[in-house]
Amino acid sequence: MIGLLKAFGKGLLYVIGFPFFLLALLVFAVIGLLLFIYQIIRSIIYFFTGQKFFPELQEDKELRLRKEAANSANEIIDQPIEEHQDIVMPLIEERPMVSEPEGNSFETVEEACFNDTPLKQEEPEEEEEDVLASLTRDEPVKQETVEEEIIEEDNSFEEMKEETLKTAEDELTIAEDEELEEYIPKGSSITTDIDEEDTSNGVDIDYDL
C-alpha cells in the first residue's frame, strides 16, 4: 500500500516535471544536431588536410605518453636475470686441481711442431656444454678450469718454446759439425728412382695416408 502511494506521489511529481524534462531533451537534441553538422564540416576539412576524423585530444596524448614511458620502464625491469648474470665464480676450494700436462719437454723440433696430442683449447665446445650443465647442477665451473688450463698451457707452451729453442740451437751447433740428415716429413714418401730423361709427365709423389 505504501509502495503504491509512493508510486502515486512520484507520478504526480513526474507529471509536473515532464514538460521541463521534455524541454531539456529537445534542447539537447537540437544541440546534438548542430554538433553533428559542425563535425561533418570539420571532418571535410580534416580529410583534405590529412588528419583523422576525431584527432587525438591533448589529455589522451598525455595519457598515451605516460603509458609508453611506464611500459618501457617495465620492460627493463621484467628482463630475465639470466641475460645479465655473470658466471658464478665457485670457491677456490671447490675448483678441481688441474694437473700439468705430461710430456712437457720435447726432444726434437719435429715433436714440438708436429705433436699429435691435441691442445685442450680444441675442446672448448664440449666443455662449454659441461659448463652450462654444471651451472644448473650447481657444480664447479669447468670453464674456469679450462681457462686456467689454457693459461697454464700457455705458460707451459712458453716454457716448451724456450726449451725447444735451446735444443734447436744445440742441434744447430751439432749440425754444423755433422752432416744434416735428410729430412723426411711424417706420412710422406719421396720416390728417389726418378728417370731424368722422362720428366714430361712430372714427378710422382705418393702420399702414404
Binding site: 509512493k6 506521489g9 504526480l12 511529481l13 507529471v15
Partner: peptide, 13 residues
C-alpha cells in the same frame, strides 16, 4: 486516476 498516476510514476522511475 490513481492507477494512471501510479503508471506514470513507474514509467518515470
Amino acid at each position: 486516476i490513481i492507477i494512471i498516476f501510479v503508471l506514470i510514476g513507474l514509467l518515470g522511475s
